[in-house]
Amino acid sequence: EPLWIRPDAPSRCTWQLGRPASESPHHHTAPAKSPKILPDILKKIGDTPMVRINKIGKKFGLKCELLAKCEFFNAGGSVKDRISLRMIEDAERDGTLKPGDTIIEPTSGNTGIGLALAAAVRGYRCIIVMPEKMSSEKVDVLRALGAEIVRTPTNARFDSPESHVGVAWRLKNEIPNSHILDQYRNASNPLAHYDTTADEILQQCDGKLDMLVASVGTGGTITGIARKLKEKCPGCRIIGVDPEGSILAEPEELNQTEQTTYEVEGIGYDFIPTVLDRTVVDKWFKSNDEEAFTFARMLIAQEGLLCGGSAGSTVAVAVKAAQELQEGQRCVVILPDSVRNYMTKFLSDRWMLQKGFLKEEDLTEKKPWWWHLRVQELGLSAPLTVLPTITCGHTIEILREKGFDQAPVVDEAGVILGMVTLGNMLSSLLAGKVQPSDQVGKVIYKQFKQIRLTDTLGRLSHILEMDHFALVVHEQIQYHSTGKSSQRQMVFGVVTAIDLLNFVAAQERDQK
């Protein structure tokens, strides 16, 4: 057995438009009618409502009807409940999964919650491996369901041993009777949507819809739904939504950006999952974080739909894509998950301010006199920076000697690579993860907040409520011999709460 199987392995699926269902090699399930009293909570997966979006479509000038398939009504709160249950049931049916076995899954959280929910009911041990950027709410729900959680670096490539995929496979090879159901490759993922989600949409719309818009992560949702719609409703256009920084969209030119990270969760990847059939997507749109969270908040405030950030991405694209539809036509959007997962993220004004998705003037509360002053007023001194090749031991000596707790790590040209902190280095040394002679590049981390000289002290204040420091950066445009230009970030300084307090105190003292 291989040590790991690539999540982007070539698909062996034989589905073709027009091929009889009787030739399918898979076990198919028909939607079942729910009894009045459910035998367990797993029976509350599927049969989610279709809700008309009344205000947002009109606000953006849509002539067509805009409908939302509300997947956050599933038992675990997301569309991923469907595939989690289906993968477990299919693994039980073919004898792969037996009582007492362990389920391991690399996930952005929602599939993990679905699997942990099913594992709690069915009696399996469950280990979820997820990147650090995923919300604390997801972690809390997983723990409450009895799952064990392993976190991995957000910026690790999918084929790196440190990625959530790599760590999951390492655990599988170490733990007896453990299984990775593997949402990236498992046919049960798109089949769950082909058999149930798509049929529900067709039934709820009486077979009449002209466009379907869905955000894409593993691709199982859009693949399964689109294949069924292509068979039953061939005139329906399928629109895929991919965040900026991901590479799922086609044509490839759409993916060209210097951005590699994004805040919206559960969609987009740096590889093409095996289950994603991009041939059934008629057109791709890219979405960005700001519009995703703005539209998610709009869905909550104006439509009462308590959905997550990827739902915002989907609707932001839908109001663009559906401009081509006329009166009497219908566009369906998939709202994948609930706001429950993001209470401390985009639902929080403070978080939105820190990330730059909300401006101070958007909030009406009274601010102190210094709130709208610029960061450049602080008069920061030149920063202490270190090269990635310097040793951890030497870096600790320098920081202690100069009285700093942290320093930016830059390359020879001064471009920011990340940050090192005294606390992080000492804990890594004590844990045996690094040696004093190791290069400081081994303990770089990139989960820090950046701020510009033109940003306000109010925004800085919000950042420092949650973080010990902020890195002050400025952009530099560099022209190359080819005539092309590129933008790079340079370090201007490091600012802490002490710097802000000293500035405010000094100004008030001078005024007296």
Rank of each mutant, 00 (worst) to 15 (best):
Y445L: 14
W369T: 03
F293T: 01
S485L: 11
R509N: 12
D277H: 07
F404E: 03
F357V: 04
K367Q: 15
H372F: 14
Y262N: 01
K366V: 14
M352E: 01
I247E: 09
V472A: 12
G483H: 14
R350L: 15
T364I: 13
E291L: 12
A311T: 15
P436G: 14
V275Y: 02
A249H: 04
E465C: 09
T314M: 15
D277V: 01
K442G: 09
Q326W: 08
T482C: 10
S287D: 01
S348F: 04
L453V: 15
V473F: 15
G441D: 14
S313N: 08
I498K: 10
Y445A: 09
V315K: 07
G441F: 14
L464C: 08
V315L: 13
G441T: 02
T391L: 08
L426V: 12
W370Y: 06
G483K: 11
L500Q: 08
K320F: 10
M352T: 08
M425P: 08
G432R: 11
Q256F: 11
L363D: 15
V332A: 14
D277E: 08
G240W: 07
I396C: 11
K283D: 09
S287C: 15
L248P: 01
T385M: 11
I247L: 15
Q256D: 05
L500R: 04
M425W: 09
I463A: 03
Y262S: 00
D277P: 01
V264S: 01
V495L: 15
R350W: 15
I247D: 09
A431T: 12
K367S: 08
G414N: 02
T395H: 09
A318H: 01
I334V: 15
Q489W: 11
K512F: 08
E401P: 13
F492V: 15
M352V: 04
Y342I: 01
L429D: 13
L378H: 05
G379P: 10
T454F: 10
P383D: 02
Q406N: 06
G356R: 09
V375K: 06
V440S: 14
L500F: 14
E265L: 02
A318C: 09
A292T: 13
M490L: 14
F448P: 08
V281A: 09
R340G: 05
L501N: 07
D349M: 02
M343L: 07
R297H: 01
S437A: 13
